[in-house]
Design a protein around this nucleic acid. Structure first.
Lengths: 207, 207, 207, 207
DNA sequence: CGGTAATCGAGACGGTACGTCTAGTCTTAAA
DNA sequence: TTTAAGACTAGACGTACCGTCTCGATTACCG
C-alpha cells in the first residue's frame, strides 16, 4: 500500500521539506509570542522565509495551518495502564493537563474554538484528530477497570471524557484560576470518586 | 444611598437609553443570525439605526459591545434551595445548561473566549460579571449541604464549579455532542456522586 | 430704513454679542494656526467657549462661519483717486495685495475656493460681498481716467480686475513665488502699460 | 542611460498597469460627475474594480491620487512658435484656457488648491510637474520675441506667466464670469499690449 | 414681578469618509 | 512544478468631522 503515497510526484520541482518545518516552527513561536488572533499569514511567511503561496499550497486556511502546526509534534502517547482505575485516571488527567498548559496549545485553543463555529469541516478534523484518540483512551481505561472488577458496569466514556477535559479547561481558560500542578490529580480523584462511589479527597460520607 | 448613582449627569445632552436598547437587541439578533465573527460594527450601527460614534462612545471595541449585549438581560437567578444537595446541583446544572445553549450565548461564547486571550481587562470584567455570581451560588449550595449534614466537610467550590460548567461546555462546544435535555441531570448526578460517595447513576460499587 | 433691522426680536433672551466676537477672533486665530481644512467646528466652539448650537444659530455651515469671520473687519476702503491712472492702479494693487497676503485671508482662501464649487449660494454671497465692491472701484477708476483724458475709451472693468487680482493670486498661491512688497507696483505698471500703450517698466519699444 | 530607470523590478509580482489606467479613468470620470469633494476613495475603488489597498499602494492620499489622475494624460504640447509675439501669446493663452476649462481640471483645481495649503510636498510636485513647463514656454516665447527684435529687453517670465494664467483663472474661478471662447485672445492681446506698448484692443492712446 | 420664550454651554446623535489592516488569490522570474 | 516576493480584491476596523438635537440653566421682555 505504500506505493499509494509515492504517487509519481516526479513532475516539476518537488516540495521542499524544509518549508514544512520552517512553517511549523514559526507558527509555534508566533503563537506564544502574539497569540492566535495577532498571528498573520504575512508575518508567518516572512519569518519563515517562505512565500505565501507555499503556505496555501499546503493548507487551505489560517486555521488549518495553525492546527497542523500545533498538532505537529504532539505526544503520541501510546497507552498507560497503571494497574488501577485511579492510577489510569491520574495518568490521563496529567496528559490532558500537560497538553492544555502547553504554551503553544494554550495560545491557539481559544482562537481555534472561535473558528470552529463557522467552519464545520475544520471542526470535524480537529475532533477526529485531537479528541477521538483521547476518548478512545477513556473507553479503554474504563473497560480495563470493569475487567479488573473495579467497576460493575461500564460508564459512558463521553461523559467521563467531558468531565476530565472540561473541568481542567474551565478551571484554566474560563475561570482563569492559576495553573497548578496539583490540579490533574484533584480532577482525577474527583472523577474516580464519582465512578467508584468513594468520596473525593477521602472525605467521609456522613449519611 | 440611591443618590450615589445619580451622579450629576447634568452637563450636556444625556445618553439616549433607546440607543443602548437598540444596540443590545440588534447585537443579540445578529449573533444568532450570523455569529460573532461575521458580526460587523457597520451592520450593527445600520440595523440599530445608530451612528458608529454612538457605539464607540459606549464600548471601546467589538468585544465590549458584544459582552455587554449578551449579559444585558441575563437571568438574575435569585437562589434555589431545593432542600437537598442533589436537587440543588440539578437546579444549578439546569441553569448553566440553559445559559450555554441559549442561542445568543452559544453564538458569542467561542469568539469571545478568543478575544479574552488578548484583552485581560475584558476578561476580568467577564469573570466578575458572569462567573463570580455562579461560583457564589456553588459556595452557598455546598454550605447548605454541610448544614443539612449531607456533607461532612465543605469541598472546594471552584473545583465543583469547574466540573459542572466545564463538563457541559466540553460536551457541547469542544466535543460537539448533540444538545441533550438529559445532560444537566447527568452532570449534576455525576458531581453528586463524587461529593457524596455514591456511584453515579446508581450503579453498584463492587469492591 | 434702519427700523427694518430692529424687527421686534424682543421675545426671549437676546443674542449675546460676545459670542459673535469670540467666534470671529477664534476663527481668525485658528485659520492662521492650522488652516481652513484642519479647522473643525468642535475646536472652534471649545476655544471660543461657546456651544456648537450657538454657532449654527448664526451661520448655517463652516463655510459661512469662516467667510463672516474673515470679512468681519476687512478694510472698508472708502475711495482713492490719486489724480492719475497709474497712481490709482498702484493704490488698488496695493490694497488687493494687502488683502491677499493677510495671514487670515491667505489661510482661508484656498479652502474657500474649494467649497464654492459645491455651494453656489455661498459663492454668490462671496462674490457680491467681496469682489463686487472691488470691481466697482475698478470701474470708477477707469471712468476717472477717461474723464481725465488719459484713456480714449473705457476698457472692460472685469478684464482689468481679473488681470490685477489674478496676477497677484497666481504669483502667490499657484506658483508660490515669495511674497514681495514690490509686486503690487509691478502688476499695476504692467496693467497700466497695457491700457496706456506704453511699454511696462519704461522699456523701449523697438518696432 | 535608459537602463537606469529599468530598476530591477524583477522581484515579486509586478504592478498591474491596468490598475493604473482604471484608476486614472475612474477618477477623471468621477471628477466631472461629482466633483473633488464628493469623490470618495471607496467609490473610486469600487468603480475601478480595484481594492483600496491597490490605491494606497500607489498614492498615499486622495490628493495624490487625484493629482496623478488629472496630470496623467495632459497635453505634452511641445512648442508653438507662430512667428510673432502676439501669435505666440495667443497660442499659449489658448492652451492655458483649454486646460483651465477642461472639465476634469476645472473640477479638481479648487479642491486641489485647498489641499496644497497643508501638504507642501504635494504642492511642490504640482508646481514642478504642472507649472514649470508652462513657465519654460513663456521664457522661450519671450526670448524668441527679443530675437525677432519685437522686444528690446526680455521681461520677467514669471510675471508674464502670472498675468496670463492668473487673469484667466480669476475670471473663471474667482469671479465666475461665464466661460467665453474669446477670453484667451483678449488676455493675450492685453499682455501683448503691456509688453509691446500698443494699447490693448487697438484702442487709440490719447496722450 | 412672575411667566414665556429664545438664548446659553455642553455634549450626544446619525451619517459618512478616511486610511489601515487582514485573509486568501494570483502573477512574476528563477530554480 | 515549486520557490520567494509581492501585488491583487474584498471588506472590517476604529477615528474624525459635520450639522442636528437635547439637556438644564440663563436672561430678557411682557403682561
Amino acid at each position: 500500500m505504500a506505493w499509494m503515497h509515492a504517487v509519481n510526484h516526479t513532475r516539476g520541482r518537488p516540495r521542499d521539506v524544509r518549508v514544512d518545518d520552517a512553517l511549523a516552527q514559526t507558527v509555534r513561536k508566533l503563537l506564544t509570542e502574539v497569540g492566535y488572533a495577532s498571528l498573520t499569514m504575512d508575518v508567518v511567511a516572512q519569518r519563515a522565509g517562505v512565500g505565501k503561496a507555499a503556505i496555501y499550497r499546503r493548507y487551505s486556511s489560517k486555521a488549518e495551518l495553525v492546527f497542523a502546526s500545533v498538532v505537529h509534534q504532539m505526544a503520541p502517547t501510546p497507552a498507560p495502564d497503571t494497574g488501577s482505575l485511579r492510577g489510569d485516571l491520574r495518568m490521563l488527567a496529567a496528559e490532558i493537563y500537560t497538553t492544555l498548559t502547553d504554551p503553544v496549545v494554550a495560545s491557539a485553543t481559544p482562537g481555534f474554538l472561535a473558528e470552529l463555529a463557522d467552519k464545520p469541516d475544520v471542526a470535524q478534523r480537529l475532533r477526529e484528530g485531537l479528541f477521538a484518540r483521547e476518548q478512545a483512551e477513556v473507553t479503554d481505561l474504563l473497560a480495563r477497570a470493569v475487567g479488573r472488577g473495579e467497576l460493575a458496569d461500564v460508564p459512558e466514556a463521553a461523559l467521563v471524557h467531558s468531565a476530565m477535559l472540561g473541568s481542567m479547561f474551565a478551571w484554566l481558560s474560563m475561570l482563569h484560576h492559576p495553573s497548578d500542578a496539583g490540579l490533574p490529580a484533584q480532577v482525577a480523584d474527583f472523577v474516580y470518586a464519582a465512578l467508584a462511589g468513594k468520596p473525593a479527597d477521602g472525605r467521609a460520607l456522613i449519611v
